[in-house]
């Protein structure tokens, strides 16, 4: 049992080291990469445009629920006027970066892990190497660079639509004055809250995209699995690890910034 534990610990440490090297090399490979533009446009489409509807839908419903729950809880203390503060701070500091990242992982991250896994499986990555093309530079770097920009944008859109959702449930469906709601929002959110939101979104973007790309890239290394099963296992693993990583890094960043 001790031996198994030791093996697994060593394996986990080795994979963590491999992941760190993979991520840093993918970032450094972007420097001077030729014709990165088209790859970046494609990455913006797959992480940004295609994920935006899901992010907006989830953001709207999150705001609606927050407005509803918050209104009744605050009404117990006669503090309905603080609904805007509650919704805006909850969204900006926590829910927007976390939920937007989870949505992008589910929509784009899983697709990217599967795509790279299939490319590994069908020797397309080997083909890139034999052509003298760094596969990390071609497949991973543009996606990491785009994640740095797109995740904060998703978080921003999520916050905005969530605030509108909170307004709809608090002011349109219930009886809170709209002016009170929006003025408490404006008073509550400061630059440090927006900064925290963007820091979290950037970190989530880098970590989750690197995890998804790394799992797809190493689909052939899944012990005991080959072919389509290795790709499906890598995709599942990418989504699960990314989701855990989002929540774990969220805790670490929050404790560092609070």
């Amino acid at each position: 049992m001790l031996q198994t534990l030791g093996h697994r610990t060593l394996g986990a440490v080795a994979e963590l080291g491999d992941f760190a090297l993979f991520t840093s090399r993918s970032f450094s490979a972007a420097v001077g990469a030729p014709r990165l533009g088209r790859r970046i446009v494609r990455a913006v489409y797959e992480q940004g445009v295609r994920c935006l509807p899901v992010v907006l839908i989830v953001g709207a419903f999150t705001g609606l629920v927050l407005g509803l729950q918050g209104y009744y809880v605050l009404a117990r203390f006669g503090s309905e006027g603080l609904l805007g503060t509650l919704v805006s701070l909850t969204l900006t500091r926590e829910l927007a970066p976390v939920l937007a990242a989870l949505m992008v992982v589910g929509q784009a991250g899983s697709a990217i892990a599967a795509e790279i896994g299939i490319q590994r499986n069908s020797e397309q990555i080997d083909a890139l190497e034999t052509m003298g093309v760094d596969p990390r530079r071609y497949l991973v770097s543009p996606r990491l660079l785009v994640a740095v920009v797109v995740y904060p944008m998703h978080a921003a859109f999520f916050t905005l639509i969530g605030l509108v959702g909170g307004y709809l449930s608090g002011s349109v469906l219930l009886s809170l004055e709209g002016g009170i709601y929006w003025s408490s929002v404006m008073r509550a959110v400061g630059p440090e809250d927006v900064r925290e939101c963007f820091i979290k979104a950037v970190v989530f973007g880098i970590v989750t995209m690197a995890i998804c790309c790394h799992n797809g890239f190493n689909a052939h290394r899944r012990p005991g699995l080959t072919g389509a099963r290795a790709v499906s296992a890598s995709t599942t693993r990418a989504v699960v690890l990314s989701s855990i990583a989002v929540l774990a890094t969220d805790y670490l960043i929050t404790s560092a910034l609070v």
């Binding site: 030729p34 014709r35 890139l128 052509m131 003298g132 093309v133 071609y138």
Partner: peptide, 9 residues
């Protein structure tokens, strides 16, 4: 075009 795009100027 890919190998030329990625390995030449």
């Amino acid at each position: 075009m890919l190998p030329l795009e990625q390995t030449t100027t």
